[in-house]
Design a protein around this nucleic acid. Sequence first.
DNA 1: ATGAAAGCGCTAACAT
DNA 2: ATGTTAGCGCTTTCAT
Lengths: 348, 348
Amino acid sequence: MSISIKDVAEKAGVSVATVSRVLSEGPVRADTKERVHAAIKALGYRPNLSARRLRTQHAQTIGLIVSDIRNPFFTAVGRGVEDAAYRAGMRVLLCNTDENVERERMYLRLMQEERVTGLILAPTLAMLDQLQKNPLQFPAVLIDRAGAGGLYDSVVLDNREAANTLVEHLFEEGYRRIGGVFGQTSATGLERRDGYCASMKARGLTPDPRLLPPTVDAGEKAMSEWLAGPDAPEAIIASNGLLLMGVVKAAQRLGRAIPSDLAVAGFDNEDWTEVVGPGLTVIEQPVHDIGRNAMSLLFDRLQNPGLAPRKVVLSGRCIVRGSTLASKPAALAENRSAPLTGAAAMNP
Amino acid sequence: MSISIKDVAEKAGVSVATVSRVLSEGPVRADTKERVHAAIKALGYRPNLSARRLRTQHAQTIGLIVSDIRNPFFTAVGRGVEDAAYRAGMRVLLCNTDENVERERMYLRLMQEERVTGLILAPTLAMLDQLQKNPLQFPAVLIDRAGAGGLYDSVVLDNREAANTLVEHLFEEGYRRIGGVFGQTSATGLERRDGYCASMKARGLTPDPRLLPPTVDAGEKAMSEWLAGPDAPEAIIASNGLLLMGVVKAAQRLGRAIPSDLAVAGFDNEDWTEVVGPGLTVIEQPVHDIGRNAMSLLFDRLQNPGLAPRKVVLSGRCIVRGSTLASKPAALAENRSAPLTGAAAMNP
DNA sequence: ATGAAAGCGCTAACAT
DNA sequence: ATGTTAGCGCTTTCAT
């Protein structure tokens, strides 16, 4: 049993109410306040947050559920959330679902049992669906992956635009057979795929998107097979940093030079994308802003629960590096304009 | 106000005690149990963890305080901890101090206010000191950075051995002017520095260690100046993944080729170290094991508080890649054996 | 300015 | 097997 407010009250010769007032900076005479502080120090008293929360019905806690803590995108977003939360005197409860709906459900339950003040959530596709049917009991903001739904506040990237930017850039550099690997567990992965497909078609090219688990290993495995086959692309787009890493690993393993054998572009401007090979062309997401915006939407909603759901759409910034800047013979470039299906047809 | 056990009891026509028994799988008749479950479902009841914790005096919570969540080493350790915790029915409270003693103290206070069951902590140097003077009120396990102190259980890498392994490897490859950058905020950084210095001296070489804040930027800045100066090393050791990244960035910025202009070795086998340049030689830490071992020590202590503090020392594995494998003329190698101070002296 | 007392939601004796 | 009740540590009326 640890030291309670009662022990402090006894030691200071006052009532528990007075101690409580001292703790909450209430009206207390200076000398009694001093006596109480002395007692607190002498006993090493620390308030019990469980008791306080139970009494006040105020958790002062923001839940943050992300799908993969190993993904630097989410750690960066987390920092944004944390900074804003602590400025507001709130704690952050960080949970990691591993893109696993089971765990996601478990953590959502936990959040409810903790009676969190609000929640910031990067849901899987499956969860996104459930959230529309069974709305949450507390204010929530969706990040990174909001889908179309209109029940929740959200802050996302303009994924279609960003994917289009990458396709456009590759097209202008002369690439035609442009493939793409996309995370299959998130609305974001799908949106980037859609943007890619639309952009390809708009240029008269045949899209070749592959949906994968958003992990390094899945990316490497899929790309290894793809690159070794007859329908190998001459440029590839990866929908997040983990898949991008997988692509690079596969290219290296197969001895494909970047960009001369394979041009590479992707999402997430992580440190390593700058130093690998000739540098990787990426869409940089305003990671910290995503976190901050999410908190800001959340606080607005806490103050005014009646607000209509808002969607904040941020833009990515395309950082062009050497991985997409092959300068090659025009002849080869000509060759490239053959539609992707042409080559694919060679492989019945 | 949310739904409480009382509402459920009323709806099911039983007492709150019975509901509580149902929740804790106590002895309840099958049909009443069913009625209670029905009521729970109908009302969407979820237990209030604050109340439960207050009553049971059992937080069922493991605190985890790390110094930098952006460092993949710590996210990986975190996963190990989380896995073990959830298997034991415990929650993890993850906090991130940014190597900032202020925040570290704040979080330590928070842990106490949450009345955590136990704590896993990667302390800064300054905190390590305080921990010896003012012991914590609850069981704690130090990870990554334990220093010499004997008050706490700890699980660490054999840092001196690992640093020696790197020096030895570089020496055998013919490098003589071997510099090192080490994190200045952790016992681990200092131990690796000491191991490096001892190993250098044992080979008749003059060590040139630099202590830095353990960040990419600090590493890049320091190395840029170092490499541009007259006492530039021909090989460099970096004491963690962030500094290692800084070294690589600096080398690239200055147009130094790896390994022909600068050999590079470091700690932490992150994905990117495999794909950058010729691949980076690194010490791989058993990251997941560190987390798991920490939890295991913690649980042992919870069951038996009287145990004497134990220190688990794990070994790193040296992964040799191209960044340290320059094959160069013997003449150059001869040149290299000139003591580092010789060159340094040219710069008064 | 301070104290007495109720009660937040829950569990665990102790009754029945 | 089930109900009654005390109390975990705290805040917050309501008195004084």
